[in-house]
Protein backbone atom coordinates (compact mmCIF):
# COMPACT_ATOMS: atom_id res chain seq x y z
CA UNK A 1 0.00 0.00 0.00
CA UNK A 2 2.82 2.33 0.91
CA UNK A 3 4.42 1.53 -2.44
CA UNK A 4 1.20 2.28 -4.29
CA UNK A 5 0.81 5.55 -2.48
CA UNK A 6 4.32 6.57 -3.33
CA UNK A 7 4.35 5.42 -6.90
CA UNK A 8 0.78 6.32 -7.91
CA UNK A 9 1.69 9.82 -9.06
CA UNK A 10 4.81 8.60 -10.81
CA UNK A 11 2.84 5.91 -12.64
CA UNK A 12 0.30 8.55 -13.59
CA UNK A 13 3.08 10.76 -14.93
CA UNK A 14 4.53 7.93 -17.01
CA UNK A 15 1.03 7.11 -18.31
CA UNK A 16 0.47 10.73 -19.29
CA UNK A 17 3.73 10.77 -21.22
CA UNK A 18 2.96 7.41 -22.84
CA UNK A 19 -0.50 8.62 -23.78
CA UNK A 20 0.74 11.83 -25.43
CA UNK A 21 3.58 9.98 -27.17
CA UNK A 22 1.06 7.57 -28.61
CA UNK A 23 -1.40 10.28 -29.62
CA UNK A 24 1.20 12.71 -30.94
CA UNK A 25 3.87 10.40 -32.37
CA UNK A 26 5.45 13.04 -34.60
CA UNK A 27 5.60 15.98 -32.28
CA UNK A 28 5.47 15.11 -28.60
CA UNK A 29 8.65 13.21 -27.78
CA UNK A 30 10.87 15.37 -29.96
CA UNK A 31 13.90 17.17 -28.57
CA UNK A 32 12.43 20.44 -29.69
CA UNK A 33 9.12 19.92 -27.94
CA UNK A 34 10.76 18.68 -24.75
CA UNK A 35 13.02 21.72 -24.71
CA UNK A 36 9.94 23.85 -25.31
CA UNK A 37 8.25 22.28 -22.32
CA UNK A 38 11.33 22.78 -20.15
CA UNK A 39 11.39 26.43 -21.14
CA UNK A 40 7.66 26.91 -20.61
CA UNK A 41 7.95 25.37 -17.17
CA UNK A 42 11.11 27.12 -16.08
CA UNK A 43 9.43 29.92 -14.12
CA UNK A 44 7.00 27.62 -12.38
CA UNK A 45 9.86 25.24 -11.59
CA UNK A 46 11.82 28.00 -9.87
CA UNK A 47 8.85 29.15 -7.78
CA UNK A 48 7.88 25.57 -6.90
CA UNK A 49 11.42 24.53 -5.97
CA UNK A 50 11.87 27.50 -3.68
CA UNK A 51 8.32 27.09 -2.34
CA UNK A 52 9.39 23.60 -1.30
CA UNK A 53 11.85 25.17 1.15
CA UNK A 54 9.07 26.67 3.28
CA UNK A 55 6.66 23.80 2.73
CA UNK A 56 9.24 21.46 4.24
CA UNK A 57 8.45 23.21 7.53
CA UNK A 58 4.69 22.84 6.93
CA UNK A 59 4.60 26.55 6.13
CA UNK A 60 3.69 28.09 2.82
CA UNK A 61 3.96 31.36 1.03
CA UNK A 62 0.99 32.79 -0.83
CA UNK A 63 2.87 35.95 -1.79
CA UNK A 64 5.23 34.38 -4.34
CA UNK A 65 3.06 35.33 -7.33
CA UNK A 66 2.80 38.99 -6.45
CA UNK A 67 6.48 38.99 -5.46
CA UNK A 68 7.29 37.69 -8.96
CA UNK A 69 5.22 40.52 -10.47
CA UNK A 70 6.86 43.06 -8.17
CA UNK A 71 10.38 41.91 -9.00
CA UNK A 72 9.70 42.28 -12.73
CA UNK A 73 8.29 45.76 -12.14
CA UNK A 74 11.25 46.78 -9.97
CA UNK A 75 13.75 45.72 -12.63
CA UNK A 76 11.75 47.32 -15.44
CA UNK A 77 11.31 50.58 -13.49
CA UNK A 78 15.07 50.81 -13.08
CA UNK A 79 15.50 50.08 -16.79
CA UNK A 80 13.08 52.93 -17.57
CA UNK A 81 15.31 55.23 -15.52
CA UNK A 82 18.32 54.05 -17.49
CA UNK A 83 20.01 52.03 -14.83
CA UNK A 84 22.10 49.12 -16.05
CA UNK A 85 20.69 45.62 -16.48
CA UNK A 86 22.66 44.37 -13.52
CA UNK A 87 21.38 47.18 -11.31
CA UNK A 88 17.82 46.25 -12.29
CA UNK A 89 18.36 42.55 -11.67
CA UNK A 90 20.20 43.21 -8.40
CA UNK A 91 17.46 45.48 -7.10
CA UNK A 92 14.75 42.98 -8.04
CA UNK A 93 16.56 40.15 -6.26
CA UNK A 94 17.11 42.34 -3.22
CA UNK A 95 13.42 43.19 -3.11
CA UNK A 96 12.65 39.46 -3.27
CA UNK A 97 15.05 38.67 -0.46
CA UNK A 98 13.82 41.51 1.76
CA UNK A 99 10.17 40.76 0.97
CA UNK A 100 10.72 37.10 1.80
CA UNK A 101 12.52 38.02 5.00
CA UNK A 102 9.57 40.23 5.92
CA UNK A 103 7.26 37.24 5.44
CA UNK A 104 9.63 35.26 7.65
CA UNK A 105 9.55 37.89 10.38
CA UNK A 106 5.74 37.99 10.32
CA UNK A 107 5.46 34.23 10.51
CA UNK A 108 8.36 33.41 12.76
CA UNK A 109 8.96 36.40 15.03
CA UNK A 110 5.49 37.93 15.20
CA UNK A 111 3.89 34.49 15.03
CA UNK A 112 1.15 35.08 12.47
CA UNK A 113 -0.12 31.98 10.63
CA UNK A 114 1.65 31.75 7.26
CA UNK A 115 -1.68 31.69 5.45
CA UNK A 116 -2.72 35.00 6.97
CA UNK A 117 0.68 36.67 6.96
CA UNK A 118 1.47 35.86 3.34
CA UNK A 119 -2.08 36.62 2.25
CA UNK A 120 -1.46 40.08 3.67
CA UNK A 121 1.90 40.48 1.99
CA UNK A 122 0.42 39.12 -1.26
CA UNK A 123 -1.77 42.22 -1.31
CA UNK A 124 1.04 44.50 -0.15
CA UNK A 125 3.49 43.34 -2.85
CA UNK A 126 0.80 43.42 -5.50
CA UNK A 127 -0.16 46.95 -4.46
CA UNK A 128 3.50 47.97 -4.51
CA UNK A 129 3.83 46.62 -8.05
CA UNK A 130 0.81 48.64 -9.15
CA UNK A 131 2.08 51.74 -7.36
CA UNK A 132 5.56 51.52 -8.82
CA UNK A 133 4.32 50.94 -12.36
CA UNK A 134 1.35 53.29 -12.14
CA UNK A 135 -0.73 50.30 -13.19
CA UNK A 136 0.98 50.26 -16.57
CA UNK A 137 2.68 47.49 -18.46
CA UNK A 138 6.30 48.48 -18.97
CA UNK A 139 7.30 47.26 -22.40
CA UNK A 140 8.88 48.09 -25.72
CA UNK A 141 12.00 50.24 -25.78
CA UNK A 142 11.97 50.55 -22.00
CA UNK A 143 13.07 46.93 -21.71
CA UNK A 144 16.69 46.55 -22.83
CA UNK A 145 17.10 44.14 -25.70
CA UNK A 146 19.84 42.19 -23.97
CA UNK A 147 17.46 41.57 -21.04
CA UNK A 148 14.71 40.09 -23.22
CA UNK A 149 17.27 38.32 -25.40
CA UNK A 150 18.34 36.28 -22.39
CA UNK A 151 15.13 34.25 -22.51
CA UNK A 152 15.50 33.79 -26.25
CA UNK A 153 19.07 32.58 -26.02
CA UNK A 154 20.49 29.20 -25.24
CA UNK A 155 23.58 27.07 -25.24
CA UNK A 156 24.11 25.00 -28.34
CA UNK A 157 24.82 21.37 -27.60
CA UNK A 158 25.30 19.56 -30.89
CA UNK A 159 22.23 20.21 -32.97
CA UNK A 160 20.01 21.31 -30.10
CA UNK A 161 19.91 24.57 -28.19
CA UNK A 162 19.23 24.36 -24.46
CA UNK A 163 17.29 27.50 -23.54
CA UNK A 164 18.81 29.84 -20.97
CA UNK A 165 15.55 29.76 -18.99
CA UNK A 166 15.84 25.99 -18.70
CA UNK A 167 19.45 26.27 -17.57
CA UNK A 168 18.51 28.91 -15.00
CA UNK A 169 15.71 26.74 -13.65
CA UNK A 170 18.02 23.73 -13.53
CA UNK A 171 20.54 25.73 -11.54
CA UNK A 172 17.92 26.96 -9.04
CA UNK A 173 16.53 23.43 -8.64
CA UNK A 174 20.02 22.09 -8.00
CA UNK A 175 20.70 24.78 -5.38
CA UNK A 176 17.38 24.06 -3.64
CA UNK A 177 18.07 20.33 -3.71
CA UNK A 178 21.54 20.88 -2.33
CA UNK A 179 20.34 23.19 0.45
CA UNK A 180 17.52 20.89 1.53
CA UNK A 181 19.17 17.50 1.13
CA UNK A 182 22.87 18.09 1.67
CA UNK A 183 23.22 20.74 4.35
CA UNK A 184 22.52 20.93 8.07
CA UNK A 185 20.29 23.89 7.35
CA UNK A 186 18.06 21.70 5.18
CA UNK A 187 17.98 18.82 7.63
CA UNK A 188 16.96 21.23 10.37
CA UNK A 189 14.13 22.56 8.23
CA UNK A 190 12.85 18.99 7.84
CA UNK A 191 13.16 18.56 11.60
CA UNK A 192 11.09 21.71 12.14
CA UNK A 193 8.51 20.33 9.73
CA UNK A 194 8.46 17.04 11.64
CA UNK A 195 7.94 18.58 15.04
CA UNK A 196 8.52 22.25 15.64
CA UNK A 197 8.31 22.05 19.40
CA UNK A 198 10.75 19.16 19.62
CA UNK A 199 13.14 20.89 17.24
CA UNK A 200 13.09 23.96 19.42
CA UNK A 201 13.76 21.92 22.54
CA UNK A 202 16.56 20.13 20.71
CA UNK A 203 18.29 23.47 20.33
CA UNK A 204 17.42 24.24 16.69
CA UNK A 205 17.11 27.98 16.13
CA UNK A 206 13.59 27.66 14.79
CA UNK A 207 12.83 31.39 14.58
CA UNK A 208 15.97 32.23 12.64
CA UNK A 209 15.74 29.25 10.30
CA UNK A 210 12.13 29.94 9.39
CA UNK A 211 13.03 33.55 8.60
CA UNK A 212 15.85 32.42 6.36
CA UNK A 213 13.67 29.86 4.61
CA UNK A 214 11.04 32.48 3.78
CA UNK A 215 13.78 34.82 2.56
CA UNK A 216 14.96 32.11 0.13
CA UNK A 217 11.42 31.55 -1.12
CA UNK A 218 11.05 35.30 -1.71
CA UNK A 219 14.37 35.33 -3.56
CA UNK A 220 13.20 32.44 -5.73
CA UNK A 221 9.97 34.28 -6.55
CA UNK A 222 12.03 37.30 -7.60
CA UNK A 223 14.20 35.13 -9.87
CA UNK A 224 11.06 33.70 -11.48
CA UNK A 225 9.64 37.21 -11.89
CA UNK A 226 12.78 38.30 -13.75
CA UNK A 227 12.61 35.21 -15.97
CA UNK A 228 8.97 35.95 -16.70
CA UNK A 229 9.70 39.61 -17.50
CA UNK A 230 12.50 38.55 -19.83
CA UNK A 231 10.27 36.00 -21.56
CA UNK A 232 7.42 38.43 -22.21
CA UNK A 233 9.83 41.36 -22.75
CA UNK A 234 7.66 43.42 -20.47
CA UNK A 235 6.60 43.83 -16.87
CA UNK A 236 3.01 44.00 -15.79
CA UNK A 237 1.88 44.36 -12.17
CA UNK A 238 -0.18 41.17 -12.32
CA UNK A 239 1.86 38.89 -14.52
CA UNK A 240 3.20 36.55 -11.84
CA UNK A 241 -0.17 35.95 -10.22
CA UNK A 242 -0.74 32.56 -11.83
CA UNK A 243 2.47 31.07 -10.48
CA UNK A 244 1.44 30.74 -6.84
CA UNK A 245 -1.37 28.19 -7.07
CA UNK A 246 0.46 26.07 -9.66
CA UNK A 247 3.57 26.05 -7.48
CA UNK A 248 1.63 24.89 -4.44
CA UNK A 249 -0.14 22.27 -6.57
CA UNK A 250 3.22 21.02 -7.85
CA UNK A 251 4.61 20.67 -4.33
CA UNK A 252 1.46 18.80 -3.23
CA UNK A 253 1.73 16.49 -6.22
CA UNK A 254 5.36 15.91 -5.31
CA UNK A 255 4.53 15.20 -1.68
CA UNK A 256 2.42 12.22 -2.73
CA UNK A 257 5.60 10.60 -3.98
CA UNK A 258 7.76 10.84 -0.90
CA UNK A 259 7.98 8.30 1.86
CA UNK A 260 6.89 10.48 4.77
CA UNK A 261 4.68 12.68 2.58
CA UNK A 262 7.11 15.51 3.07
CA UNK A 263 8.06 17.85 0.22
CA UNK A 264 11.23 16.98 -1.70
CA UNK A 265 12.69 19.14 -4.45
CA UNK A 266 13.05 16.28 -6.93
CA UNK A 267 9.44 15.21 -6.42
CA UNK A 268 8.30 18.82 -6.69
CA UNK A 269 10.05 18.89 -10.05
CA UNK A 270 8.01 15.87 -11.14
CA UNK A 271 4.88 17.71 -9.97
CA UNK A 272 5.89 20.68 -12.12
CA UNK A 273 6.51 18.36 -15.07
CA UNK A 274 3.08 16.75 -14.68
CA UNK A 275 1.40 20.17 -14.88
CA UNK A 276 3.55 21.36 -17.78
CA UNK A 277 3.35 18.18 -19.83
CA UNK A 278 -0.44 18.20 -19.47
CA UNK A 279 -0.60 21.78 -20.69
CA UNK A 280 1.67 21.16 -23.64
CA UNK A 281 0.19 17.84 -24.68
CA UNK A 282 -3.41 18.89 -24.34
CA UNK A 283 -2.79 22.08 -26.34
CA UNK A 284 -1.27 19.97 -29.09
CA UNK A 285 -4.24 17.61 -28.91
CA UNK A 286 -6.46 20.64 -29.13
CA UNK A 287 -8.39 20.05 -25.92
CA UNK A 288 -10.54 23.04 -25.03
CA UNK A 289 -8.53 25.31 -22.74
CA UNK A 290 -11.24 25.34 -20.08
CA UNK A 291 -11.57 21.56 -20.13
CA UNK A 292 -7.79 21.51 -19.72
CA UNK A 293 -8.01 23.56 -16.54
CA UNK A 294 -10.66 21.29 -15.08
CA UNK A 295 -8.59 18.21 -15.92
CA UNK A 296 -5.43 19.64 -14.37
CA UNK A 297 -7.34 20.38 -11.16
CA UNK A 298 -8.92 16.91 -11.14
CA UNK A 299 -5.57 15.23 -11.66
CA UNK A 300 -4.06 17.07 -8.70
CA UNK A 301 -7.04 16.06 -6.57
CA UNK A 302 -6.89 12.48 -7.85
CA UNK A 303 -3.20 12.15 -7.04
CA UNK A 304 -3.56 13.53 -3.56
CA UNK A 305 -6.71 11.47 -2.98
CA UNK A 306 -5.01 8.21 -3.99
CA UNK A 307 -2.20 9.11 -1.67
CA UNK A 308 -4.37 9.92 1.33
CA UNK A 309 -6.73 6.96 0.84
CA UNK A 310 -3.84 4.51 0.74
CA UNK A 311 -2.31 6.24 3.72
CA UNK A 312 -5.56 5.82 5.66
CA UNK A 313 -5.59 2.12 4.80
CA UNK A 314 -2.10 1.63 6.05
Amino acid sequence: MQKLRQSGTLIGFVLIIAFFSFQLPDTFLTARNLLNISQQLSMLAVVAATMTIVMVMNDFDLSVGSMASLSGIVAASLFVNEYSIWAGIGAALLVGLVGGLFNGILVSVVGILPFVATLGTLTVYSGAAFLLSGGKTIFGRDIPKSFSDFSRGGIEVGSIKIPMLTITAGFVIFVCWYILEQTNFGRRLYAIGGNREASYLAGIKVVKLRMLAFALTGLGAAVAGLMYASRVASANPTQGAGLMLDAIAAVFLGMTMSKQSEPRVIFTLIGVLVLGVLDNGMTQMRVDSYVREILVGLIVIAAVAVSSISKANR
Partner: peptide, 11 residues
Protein backbone atom coordinates in the same frame (compact mmCIF):
# COMPACT_ATOMS: atom_id res chain seq x y z
CA UNK B 1 -7.54 30.93 -23.65
CA UNK B 2 -4.69 31.29 -21.16
CA UNK B 3 -6.86 33.21 -18.69
CA UNK B 4 -4.73 36.31 -18.34
CA UNK B 5 -1.34 34.56 -18.42
CA UNK B 6 0.90 36.14 -21.08
CA UNK B 7 3.82 33.73 -20.71
CA UNK B 8 1.36 30.86 -21.17
CA UNK B 9 0.23 32.54 -24.40
CA UNK B 10 3.84 32.29 -25.63
CA UNK B 11 3.92 28.65 -24.56
Amino acid sequence: DTAGDIAAAIS
